[in-house]
Amino acid sequence: MGNPTLDVTWAVEWLRKSAAVVAENRMALIELDRVIGDGDHGENLDRGFTAILEKLDAEPPTTPGAAFKLAAMALMSKVGGAAGPLYGTAFLRAATTLGDASELDAPALAAALGAARDGVVARGKAEVGEKTMIDAWTPAVDAAAAAAASGMGPAELLDAAATAAEAGAVSTDPLIARKGRASYLGERAIGHRDPGAASSALILRAAAQAAGVNA
Rank of each mutant, 00 (worst) to 15 (best):
A20P: 02
H41L: 05
V121K: 15
E54V: 14
N214Y: 10
T163S: 07
V170G: 00
A82N: 06
V35Q: 11
L29N: 05
L157N: 07
T132L: 03
A197E: 01
E187L: 05
D57R: 08
R123V: 05
D142A: 13
L86W: 00
F68I: 00
G84I: 01
A167I: 12
A162L: 00
A206C: 12
F49Q: 01
D38N: 11
G129N: 11
K125I: 10
A145V: 13
R205K: 14
A23E: 09
A51F: 08
D194M: 04
A145F: 08
G129W: 12
A83W: 09
D142T: 14
L45A: 08
T63M: 00
A201L: 09
V21H: 10
T9I: 03
G42F: 07
G168I: 04
K131P: 00
G2Y: 10
A108D: 02
A208P: 04
R188E: 09
A169H: 02
D142E: 15
S150A: 15
A112I: 00
D7V: 01
P64K: 08
D100K: 06
T96P: 03
P60I: 14
E103Q: 13
A177D: 02
V21F: 00
R181A: 08
T50D: 06
M27H: 09
L158S: 06
V35A: 12
L6N: 00
A112R: 07
G37T: 05
L202E: 04
A74P: 04
A58G: 02
W10K: 07
N3I: 03
M76I: 05
A182R: 11
T132R: 00
R26A: 01
A51L: 06
A28M: 03
A167R: 13
P154L: 08
V22E: 03
R93A: 09
I203E: 10
R178T: 06
A11Y: 10
P195W: 13
T138P: 03
A164V: 10
A115I: 01
V21T: 15
D118E: 15
G2T: 10
D159K: 15
A162P: 02
A11R: 06
D173T: 09
L45W: 14
S199P: 02
L157P: 05
V12Q: 03
V120W: 04
L86M: 10
A101S: 11
V141D: 08
A162I: 10
G114N: 11
A148V: 10
H41D: 01
L98V: 02
M73A: 15
R188Q: 12
S18H: 01
G119T: 14
T5P: 00
A167D: 12
K78R: 09
A95Q: 07
E13Q: 11
K125H: 15
V8T: 10
M152K: 14
L175E: 07
A95Y: 06
G180R: 07
K179G: 02
A28T: 10
G191S: 09
A148I: 11
D194H: 05
A164T: 12
L175T: 04
V12W: 09
L113E: 08
L53Y: 13
G191H: 10
T89Q: 02
E187D: 12
A149D: 14
Y184I: 00
A74H: 07
I203M: 15
Y184K: 14
L75D: 02
A177Y: 05
G168N: 06
A19K: 04
L15R: 08
L70H: 04
G191R: 13
A143G: 14
G2F: 11
I134W: 12
M73Y: 11
A94L: 07
A210N: 13
